[in-house]
Design a protein around this nucleic acid. Structure first.
Length: 747
DNA sequence: GTAGGGTTAG
């Protein structure tokens, strides 16, 4: 039995909410008596009883002939969830004014809040402005109503209104608006609020403190968050969770784990949200061992069944640790998956280079499980399409999701820029770029990088200047994109300029990736000694990418001695990468040092190196075909090899000589020729020639770099077939036409 | 009427 007072307050279980979940249980309520005793209504809870449909609201309105009855009716309507209707609320207003009643502040404030919850902001504001007087609760009700329902700007307007009326914020107001300041990126407002809080002695309020920890964390100011945490007189679990999340979200997993221990020493037991942050911290600190502990911890408490969020967090943890299999196993065990679960799994596969698996999961999600994809889904699946060059499939998916009412935001916009750019469509890339909001560096970085892989280094630099003119702060990735763009276009001076500007003007310390780019830049341009000296003077320990850049440059410029040196270092840091053996063998071969070639070959063979399987893909009639090197299982296999043999004959007439230094296997020459023509890019090209009309362009995607022999061969093929052949490999674009490549053999 | 969470771009 529930008892409702005329003010509308629901008595039992009335925690801090005015009307706790009035709508959830409404099915089981029916009115046992509409009391004529004017100060309460009785409602009995009866699960098998009738629902509210038997209530004659018209009759109730007509019978409400005095103030008490009007308030009872009002309360009843709130409990029944009827006040969400503007029609009913207008009738209520009329009833109140007909009876000469003022709005009850308490009811009105609750109504305001409820309207906001249903997105009826105008109605809420209307009631609010019509209130005869407003106490603190009213102001907080409308402000929090707006805040929690995505109307942050509106909330701040009301806050200004409140200040104009000379009303001071209390701790509730402060805790309400801080998340909004963070969401609106309004650091200034938050800082001013902090001053206000100190001035008015609100800083020791628990809610205020917690809100500030989260506020500063969102702006990356962990030190401030820490100061707030330190100064707190009382701390609760939320305070601890907030400081742990602050470190976790600002890439300081060690501190997060540290506070996790401290918190337990202080006698606080972690809850679900603590563990969510800890799972993410473990992923960041790449601590595979602890990942199992967390998994066990959750399992022992049966928290996987409690809330889907924890399962999602652990799936994400495994995926980020590179363990896609464990992620999938857990994912399959989540019974009630939500859209984030699917997105996490798709992203997880994508981040581990398993684009096809990611696409499979997406299809299961949409076609079998009928889950409606959201923006996060697009942001997860589009990079997977970009990875294998599935432009048509990507854009079709994008179109389909748009139909479900999703808008183009910065995330999706940037994914699309990347997709179009990586698939070679620079025109659409630029079109999109101009449509996307460009307040952060991310879309700029994407377009700079895409222009770079197309060899438009000058345009990349121009966009960089535009970016600075627009007042957008460049970050480390901006400079990686720029340096690699300069490198692809041979813009040595400009690249060096970028490297200096990055450090001197933006205080960004170069990472190994930056060093790798610069070595690549100098090396490709033939300044091998300079590149080598540069490596020797690096303050960081050079890794495989740095030495690999030097080795690649040595191959281009035929420097066997430096190449040997670079590969020796490489075999120390990354001994199992077969690509380096191929490069070195090729360097020796070009220099005519056949004993060197043999040495490298036998070394590679003795190690029994597992190659990264090379694959190339081509999209024909909206369908992706993926060819692995040496594939013989394709239905058109015979036709493909026949085509390649035919081409080989014609190529040889035109002067093509196969370059066997790219073949590491120790086999006869015939066999070597066969190995070369079964490289995945050639299979894909032949498949394209067979299945598309004559003289139309062919677009190929390759996961590794195009080998030197295939590069030469493709030039001949483009001449023989009179086709434009566009190959995007892991490094850049090659546009073959009339026997030449756009990269000018500079790659 | 108030504070904390998982996925998402280069």
């Amino acid at each position: 039995m529930l008892k409702l007072l005329s003010g509308g307050r629901l008595l039992p279980n009335c925690k801090s909410n005015y009307f706790p979940k009035p709508f959830c249980s409404i099915r089981y309520l029916h009115i046992s008596s509409y009391s004529t005793v004017p100060n309460y209504i009785q409602i009995s809870s009866n699960e098998s009883g009738s629902n509210d449909q038997g209530i004659d609201i018209d009759l109730l309105f007509h019978s409400s002939t005095n103030a008490h009855l009007a308030k009872c009716l009002h309360a009843l309507l709130i409990v029944l969830g009827k006040v969400q209707s503007l029609f009913i609320s207008t009738r209520l207003l009329n009833l109140y004014s007909n009876l000469g009643l003022e709005w009850d502040v308490f009811v009105a404030a609750s109504l305001v809040h409820m309207y906001c919850r249903f997105g009826l902001f105008d109605a809420a504001y209307q009631i609010f402005t019509n209130m005869p007087y407003r106490d603190m609760g009213c102001w907080n009700a409308i402000i929090s109503g707006f805040c929690q329902n995505g109307k942050g700007e509106k909330a701040l307007e009301v806050l200004d209104e409140m200040k104009l009326e000379g009303i001071k914020m209390d701790s509730v107001t402060v805790s309400t608006i801080l998340p909004v300041c963070a969401q609106l990126d309004d650091m200034v407002q938050g800082r001013l609020t902090h001053l206000y809080v100190i001035k008015h002695g609100l800083e020791h309020d628990l809610f205020v403190g917690n809100a500030f920890i989260n506020f500063y964390a969102k702006f990356g100011e962990v030190e401030h968050a820490q100061k707030v945490f330190d100064s707190m007189v009382i701390r609760d679990l939320i305070s601890w969770n907030s400081i742990i999340a602050a470190y976790e979200q600002n890439n300081n997993p060690d501190y997060a784990l540290n506070f996790f221990n401290k918190m337990q020493m202080d006698g606080f037991k972690p809850d679900l949200l603590t563990i969510v942050s800890i799972a993410s911290s473990i992923a960041q600190s790449r601590d595979s061992q602890s990942s199992r502990c967390v998994h066990g911890f959750i399992q022992r408490r049966c928290w996987f069944e409690k809330d889907v969020i924890i399962g999602n967090a652990v799936v994400d943890m495994y995926a980020k640790l590179g363990d896609a299999d464990s992620a999938r196993k857990l994912f399959d065990k989540i019974l009630l998956k939500d859209v984030v679960s699917w997105n996490t799994m798709i992203t997880g596969y994508g981040q581990n280079g398993l684009a096809n698996e990611a696409i499979d999961v997406y299809h299961t999600m949409v076609e079998i499980e009928h889950v409606t994809p959201n923006q996060g889904t697009l942001a997860s699946i589009l990079p997977a399409y970009a990875h294998i060059g599935a432009l048509k499939e990507g854009t079709t998916t994008h179109g389909r999701v748009l139909k479900t009412g999703q808008l183009l935001d910065v995330f999706i916009g940037t994914c699309l820029i990347d997709l179009y750019g990586k698939c070679g469509d620079m025109e659409d890339t630029m079109k999109l770029f101009y449509e996307v909001p460009k307040t952060s560096s991310v879309p700029w970085n994407a377009v700079i990088s895409c222009l770079g892989i197309h060899g438009h280094g000058e345009t990349s630099l121009k966009l960089f200047r535009n970016m600075l003119d627009d007042g957008v702060q460049p970050d480390t990735i901006t400079f990686i994109s720029l340096l690699s763009a300069c490198s692809h276009s041979g813009l040595v001076e400009q690249g060096e300029w970028c490297f200096n500007v990055m450090q001197n003007d933006y205080g960004i310390k170069p990472s190994l990736k930056h060093y790798g780019c610069l070595v690549d830049l100098l090396g490709r341009a033939g300044q091998l000694e300079k590149a080598y000296n540069f490596i020797k003077n690096m303050p960081l320990q050079p890794d495989a990418s740095v030495w690999g850049a030097l080795l690649g440059a040595c191959r281009i410029h035929g420097n066997a001695d430096l190449g040997k040196l670079a590969s020796d270092r490489l075999l120390e840091v990354d001994p199992d990468n077969v690509g380096y053996y191929v490069l070195l063998s090729n360097i020796y071969a070009n220099a005519g040092k056949w004993d060197g070639v043999n040495r490298v070959r036998s070394l590679a063979n003795s190690k029994g190196l597992k190659k990264t399987p090379g694959w190339s893909s081509i999209e024909i009639n909206n369908k992706m075909e993926v060819f692995y090197t040496g594939n013989y299982s394709h239905p058109q296999c015979d036709q493909i090899y026949e085509e390649l043999e035919n081409l080989m004959t014609k190529m040889k007439i035109l002067g093509y000589i196969p370059d066997y230094s790219f073949v590491l296997q120790d086999v006869e020459e015939d066999e070597k020729q066969h190995i070369l023509i079964s490289h995945s890019e050639r299979l894909a090209i032949a498949y394209g020639i067979i299945n598309t009309p004559a003289r139309t362009p062919i677009r190929i995607f390759k996961n590794l770099r195009v080998c030197g022999d295939c590069h030469t061969a493709t030039k001949f093929i483009s001449r023989i077939t009179e086709r434009e052949i566009i190959v995007r490999d892991s490094n850049r674009f090659h546009n073959f036409k009339d026997g030449v490549c756009s990269c000018g053999d500079y790659w």
